[in-house]
Design a binder for these strands. Structure first.
Length: 987
RNA sequence: GGGCCCGUAGCUCAGCCUGGUUAGAGCGCCCGGCUGAUAACCGGGAGGUCGGGGGUUCAAAUCCCCCCGGGCCCA
C-alpha cells in the first residue's frame, strides 16, 4: 500500500489516506503494544486530565491535546513504556446544565417533575454522545491515547474510589458537616466550592450605598454604614466597628453621624457633604454594645422579635479602613465574617431567603423578590424613611456561577467539608518537589495552597458521585461507606443496589449498628472536582488494575490550562496528600489559553468559538497542530487567527517539494537504499554538512521537548526543512543529480538526501504525525525495503559518528558566508547570476583546510568559476574586496568579459527552451530531436559557441541555426535581441 | 487592595534570565535576479520613541522603581 506522491501537498487527501491506513493496519494499537512490551524499559507515566463530556472540542482544547501527543510520541520513540490511558469527566453540574438546556429546564423543580431517574438517564446519554464526539475529534487530531481503556468518572468502580477516599476522611474526622456561609448559585440551587468560585469572577456594576442606622439611646444620632449589597440589610443583625481605630461624631444639620475618622474625608468627598463639624472623637470600642433600631424594622416585622445582642454594635479587627465608613453592617446569613462574628456573641442567623434566591415570608414586604432585585426596593424604602445618605455606583468583581453565569449569593447553610488544615503543610512541601513549567505557575500554586480553606464538597444536585454518608433516623448515628461490599453488608435491602447513582442509591437503607434503626443517605452528591481529583487511583481501579498502582504512582507528567491551578491540579494534590501523603504528579506543564484573533476569550455567547473538527476539516490536523504549537510558548495565551496557518502550509509545501525532488530523480535513476551505507560512505563535504546539521537538529529538538519548550522544538524542525534542506542542501546537489551517467557523487547525493529526509520525518512525526507518515510511506518505504511498517514505530534518531565530520560542517558554513557575500556583490554591480564570476579569492589566516572543503558551495550557490584560498593578502591585486569579518576577507573579480557574456546568453537560451519543454509537458528525461533557433548578433554567436552546452542541458540531439524565424516558433527577447525557438519531437 | 503573564517593524514573533557591534526573523510592501522539486527561491530596499517616565551603569530592549494598556489569578 504505497500512496501516490502527488505534485502538490494536499493535507486533506494526505490525512484521509493516513487515517484509513492507521485504521486498516491498526497502527495505534501496534505502536502502543510495541511500547508497553519493552521489558526493562523505563516507564513514562502520563495522567490524562479528563475533558468534560458536555460539549465539543474547540481549538483551545486541541492545543493542549497536541502538547500531550507530542510528548507521548517522543517518549515512545525514545523507547519508553508509555502509560497513556485516556479519561473522561462525566458527571457534575456541567453535564446537568447541558441536559437542562436540552430539555428546556429553568430550575431544579423542573428536574423533580420530570423524574430524577429519567433525568439521570438523559445525563448518561448526553455523556455517551459527547465522549464519542471527543474520541473521534481526538483521533482525527492524531492524539493517540488508550481510548479503549479510558477511565470514566461515572463508572461504579470509579465512584467506589471516591467513596474509599471519603470514608477515610470521615474516619479521620476530616469530613464534617457544618453550618457555614457558602457561595450558592441560586439558579443551580447548590453550594459551590471556593475553587469553583475562583473560576467565575466578573466585573459588575453594583450600588455603593451609604445609609444611616439610628442609635436607640442617643437622640438624633446615627451610625453611617456602607454596603454594595443593599438586599442583605433585610437580614442585618449587627453592626461592626474596629475596636482601636478612632471614630468621630460629626454634626450634620441637626443630626449626629458616627463613622471612622480615617474614612471621614473620603466619605465627605464621595457623598458631597459640604459642611459638618466634628463634635467628639473616641475609639471604636466605646460604641460596643450600643443598641440600634433596625433600618427596615417596619418593612421586616420579624426583626421586632430580635433582642440584644441582636441589633447591637460589635467590634472586629477585620473592619477595614480602606473603604466604606469603618461601620460595617453584618448579616450573618450572607457574609462569612459576619457569620463568625455574630456566632461568637450568640446572635442567631436570620435567613429570610430561600436557596433559589427568592425572599420568604420572613422578609416581610420583600417576600417573593429575587435577591438582587430587592436592593432597589430597599434603597427606595431607606430614602423614604430619611435613612439614605448617598447612593453611588461601583464597578468591582463579583463571583458568578462558573457554569451558568448567575451572580452568586453568600448564604448560611448546612454543608459537608473536607479539612484542609491537617494536610496543608504536606501539600506545600510536596509542591516543592513538583517541576512546574513555567516556574511562576508553581509559585502561584503555592500561594493558592497557603491560603486554602476547607473544601466544601457537598452539592444538592443529582448527577454525581453520591455522598456515602448515612444517618440513623432513630438515634442520629452516622457512618460513611467505603466500598460496595461494605454497603451490601450494611444494607437492609442489598438486593436493591443496582447503581451507585441517584436516585437508586437513595433507596438503600442501612441497619444502624448502634440501635438497629433505619439509616438514610445524606441526599448530596459530591463536587465534580473530587471526581477528577482521585483519577490517580480510580482510573486504575475502574479496570481492576490496582496492582499497577505502585508502578505508576506518582505520575511523571500532567498538562492542562492555567485555570486548573484551582481545579484539577489542586484536587489531585488534596486527595493524594490526604490518602498517601504524596504528590500524585512530578511535573506539570501549565498551558495558556487560546483566544480569538482579537484576543477575546472564545465563548458560545460571543459566537467566536472555532471547533476543532471544523478547523481540521478545512486545513487538516497537522496544520492545526503546528500552528498552535509554533505560535507561542505553551504557557502563553495565543490569539488564534485562521489566516495565519498559511505560513505553516508554506513550510510543509517546501517539505513536500523536497521529497518530490528526491523522488523525481531517484526514481529516474532507479536508485534504491539497498547500498545506503556504502553510498553514504562516499559523502562529499556538503553531504557531511547536512548530516552534521541533522545531528544538531535531533539534539536540539530533543532538548527542547524535554524542557517543554514545544514551540521552540517545532520551530527548529520547520526551520531545518526550509533553511537547511531546501534552500541550501538541495540547491547544492542539483548539478550532481543532473549528471546523466551513474556516478559515485550522484549516488552519495541520493543517499544523503534519502537519509536526511527519513530522519527529518522521524523528528517531525511527534509534531505532524500525518504528513510524516504519508511521506514515510510514499517515499522512504518505496526506496528502502527495510523500512518499518509505520514512521511511528521508528526510534528517535541518533546519527552515527562515522557520518559526522565537523570540519566539513565548519568549512561549508564559512563558505556560505562567502557565497552570500558574492551574491550581494552581484546585485550591487548588476551582474546576473547566470553570468559566471571568474575568480574569487578567500583570505583566511586560520582554518583554510576546513574552508577548502566548502568550495563547491561558492561555485554552485554563487556561480563562481574559480576559487582561490590563501592565508595572506599577497596576490589579490585587480580584485575588489567584497566582504570582511574577523576570520575572512573575500575578493572577487567583478569584471565582465565577452566569454562570460556569451555564456550568460547561452544560459538564457537554455532557460527559454526549458520553459517550453515544461509548457509542452515533456517528461524530464525525454529527448528533443531537433532544436530550431533563429537569432542574430551576439545571441547568434553565443548559440554557435555554446552549441554543445545548450544541446546537453536541454537534452536535444541536434541544434539548427536558422536565418529566418521558423514557422510556429516561440518568440522572445533576450537582452534586447530577438530569439525564436522551435522544438521538434518525433514519437 | 495584592500577585502573575504580555506589550519590540504594517502583521506574527525572537532577543531580556547572564547589560556591550549597526535590535533580528518570517509574512506583507517596493526594486532587481533566478528557475526542469517552483503557487518555490535569491539579493537589495523602505519600515522601529523596543508601551511611557525615572533610576543604576562607561554602557539598558535587557537590571531596579513608578505609570499606562491588554489578559489572568487571588482577596
Amino acid at each position: 500500500m504505497v500512496p501516490e506522491l502527488g505534485k502538490r501537498y494536499d493535507p486533506k487527501k494526505v490525512e484521509e489516506w493516513v487515517l484509513s491506513f492507521w485504521k486498516e493496519y491498526e497502527i495505534p494499537r501496534k505502536v502502543r503494544e510495541q511500547s508497553l512490551s519493552r521489558e526493562d524499559a523505563p516507564l513514562f507515566r502520563f495522567l490524562e486530565g479528563p475533558p468534560t463530556a458536555n460539549g465539543y472540542m474547540h481549538v483551545g482544547h486541541a492545543r493542549g491535546r497536541t502538547f500531550k501527543d507530542i510528548v507521548l510520541r517522543y517518549y515512545r520513540m525514545k523507547g519508553f513504556r508509555v502509560w497513556d490511558q485516556a479519561g473522561w469527566d462525566t458527571q457534575g453540574l456541567p453535564v446537568e446544565l447541558e441536559v437542562e438546556k436540552k430539555l428546556g429546564f429553568r430550575s431544579k423543580k423542573d428536574i423533580l417533575e420530570y423524574g430524577v431517574e429519567k433525568f439521570i438517564d438523559e445525563c448518561q446519554k448526553l455523556v455517551d454522545y459527547y465522549i464519542s464526539e471527543w474520541r473521534s475529534a481526538s483521533e482525527r487530531l492524531g492524539l493517540w491515547l488508550d481510548y479503549d481503556h479510558a477511565y470514566q468518572t461515572r463508572h461504579p468502580r470509579y465512584i467506589e474510589i471516591a467513596w474509599r477516599f471519603l470514608k477515610e476522611m470521615w474516619e479521620r474526622g476530616w469530613l464534617y458537616e457544618d453550618l457555614r456561609v457558602v457561595p450558592v448559585c441560586p439558579r443551580c440551587e447548590t453550594a459551590l466550592s471556593s475553587h469553583e468560585v475562583a473560576l467565575g469572577y466578573k466585573v459588575v456594576k453594583d450600588p455603593s450605598l451609604y445609609f444611616k442606622i439610628k442609635l436607640l439611646d442617643e437622640p438624633n444620632t446615627f451610625l453611617v454604614a456602607w454596603t454594595t449589597t443593599p438586599w442583605t440589610i433585610i437580614a442585618n443583625e449587627a453592626v461592626a466597628v474596629h475596636p482601636t481605630e478612632t471614630y468621630v461624631k460629626i454634626r450634620v444639620g441637626n443630626e449626629f453621624w458616627i463613622l471612622a475618622k480615617k474614612r471621614l474625608e473620603a466619605f465627605a468627598k464621595e457623598v458631597g457633604l459640604q459642611s459638618y463639624e466634628i463634635v467628639e472623637e473616641f475609639p471604636g470600642k466605646a460604641l460596643e454594645g450600643k443598641v440600634y433600631e433596625h433600618p427596615l424594622l417596619e418593612e421586616v416585622p420579624k426583626h421586632r422579635e430580635h433582642r440584644p445582642p441582636h441589633h447591637t454594635v460589635l467590634t472586629a479587627e477585620w473592619v477595614s479602613m480602606e473603604e466604606g465608613t469603618g461601620v460595617v453592617h453584618c448579616a450573618p446569613a450572607h457574609g462569612p465574617e459576619d457569620f463568625e462574628l455574630c456566632k461568637s456573641v450568640g446572635i442567631e442567623v436570620f435567613r429570610p431567603i430561600a436557596k433559589n434566591g427568592v425572599f420568604t415570608e420572613d422578609a416581610g414586604k420583600y417576600a417573593g423578590l429575587w435577591f438582587r432585585d430587592a436592593s432597589e426596593k430597599v434603597v427606595e424604602d431607606l430614602r423614604r424613611k430619611g435613612l439614605l445618605v448617598y447612593l453611588g455606583w461601583i464597578e468591582h468583581e463579583y463571583p458568578h456561577c462558573w457554569r451558568c453565569d448567575t451572580p452568586l449569593m453568600y448564604y448560611a447553610d448546612r454543608q459537608w467539608f473536607i479539612r484542609i488544615e491537617p494536610i496543608k503543610k504536606t501539600m506545600l512541601e510536596e509542591n516543592e518537589k513538583i517541576r512546574w513549567r513555567p516556574d511562576w505557575a508553581g509559585k502561584r500554586f503555592e500561594d493558592w495552597l497557603a491560603n486554602a480553606r476547607d473544601w466544601c464538597v457537598s452539592r444538592e444536585r443529582f448527577w454525581g458521585t453520591p455522598l456515602p454518608v448515612w444517618t440513623c433516623r432513630s438515634c442520629g448515628y452516622r457512618l460513611a461507606v467505603g466500598s460496595f461490599e461494605e454497603l451490601r453488608k450494611l444494607a437492609k435491602n442489598p438486593q436493591d443496589f443496582v447503581d451507585p447513582h441517584r436516585p437508586w442509591i437513595d433507596r438503600i437503607v442501612l441497619r444502624c449498628p448502634k440501635c438497629g434503626g433505619d439509616m438514610v443517605r445524606e441526599p448530596y452528591v459530591v463536587d465534580v472536582w473530587l471526581d477528577s481529583g482521585i483519577a490517580h487511583t480510580a482510573a486504575l481501579h475502574q479496570y481492576g488494575w490496582d496492582h499497577l498502582f505502585d508502578e505508576l504512582f506518582p505520575y511523571d507528567w500532567i498538562t492542562e490550562a492555567v485555570d486548573q491551578t484551582r481545579g484539577w491540579f489542586y484536587t489531585l494534590l488534596v486527595t493524594s496528600v490526604a490518602m498517601y501523603g504524596k504528590t500524585p504528579f512530578r511535573a506539570v506543564l501549565c498551558q495558556g489559553h487560546v483566544l480569538d484573533k482579537y484576543g477575546k476569550k472564545m465563548s458560545k455567547h460571543l459566537g467566536n468559538v472555532i471547533w476543532a473538527k471544523d478547523f481540521m476539516e478545512k486545513f487538516g490536523a497537522d496544520l492545526l497542530r503546528l500552528y498552535v504549537t509554533t505560535k507561542a510558548a505553551p504557557w502563553d495565551s495565543i490569539n488564534f487567527d485562521p489566516d495565519e496557518v498559511s505560513e505553516i502550509r508554506r513550510q510543509l509545501d517546501i517539505l513536500w517539494n523536497c521529497v518530490l525532488f528526491a523522488h523525481t530523480y531517484a526514481s529516474m535513476d532507479r536508485w534504491s537504499a539497498e547500498n545506503l551505507e556504502k553510498d553514504l560512505g562516499n559523502a562529499l563535504p556538503v553531504d557531511r554538512w547536512i548530516l552534521y546539521e541533522l545531528k544538531r537538529l535531533v539534539e536540539e529538538v530533543e532538548a527542547r521537548i524535554l524542557n517543554n519548550d514545544l514551540h521552540l522544538a517545532a520551530r527548529t524542525v520547520l526551520n531545518f526543512i526550509v533553511e537547511k534542506l531546501s534552500h541550501r542542501y538541495i540547491t547544492l546537489i542539483r548539478p550532481r543529480v543532473w549528471l546523466e551517467e551513474d556516478r559515485v557523487e550522484k549516488r552519495s547525493a541520493y543517499a544523503t538526501l534519502f537519509y536526511v529526509i527519513k530522519n527529518v520525518l522521524k523528528v517531525l512525526a511527534p509534531f505532524a504525525p500525518f504528513i510524516a507518515e504519508y511521506l514515510y510511506q510514499a517515499f522512504v518505504k518505496r526506496y528502502d525495503p527495510k523500512a518499518l511498517e509505520s514512521v511511528h514505530m521508528e526510534s528517535w534518531p541518533s546519527i552515527p559518528k562515522e557520518l559526522l565530520d565537523e570540519s566539513c560542517w565548519r568549512g561549508v558554513e564559512k563558505m556560505f558566508v562567502v557565497a552570500e557575500a558574492v551574491l550581494a556583490a552581484r546585485t550591487r554591480v548588476g551582474i546576473k547570476r547566470r553570468w559566471p564570476i571568474k575568480r574569487v579569492v578567500v583570505v583566511a589566516r586560520e582554518g583554510l583546510e576546513d574552508i577548502a572543503k566548502g568550495v563547491d558551495v561558492v561555485k554552485i550557490y554563487a556561480n563562481v568559476k574559480e576559487i582561490e584560498l590563501v592565508s595572506d593578502v599577497g596576490k589579490v591585486e585587480g580584485l575588489e574586496k567584497i566582504y570582511e569579518d574577523k576570520d575572512l576577507v573575500v575578493y572577487a573579480d567583478l569584471k565582465l568579459d565577452e566569454e562570460t557574456l556569451m555564456e550568460g546568453l547561452a544560459k538564457d537560451v537554455v532557460r527559454r527552451v526549458q520553459v517550453l519543454r515544461k509548457e509542452m509537458d515533456l517528461p524530464i528525461d525525454a529527448w528533443i530531436d531537433r532544436l530550431l533557433i533563429y537569432a542574430v548578433g551576439d545571441l547568434r554567436k553565443a548559440v554557435e559557441r555554446f552549441r554543445d552546452y545548450i544541446a546537453r542541458e536541454t537534452r536535444c540531439r541536434e541544434i539548427v541555426l536558422l536565418d529566418a524565424p521558423p514557422e510556429g516558433g516561440r518568440k522572445s527577447v533576450v537582452e534586447g535581441m530577438e530569439l525564436v525557438i522551435k522544438l521538434e519531437i518525433s514519437r
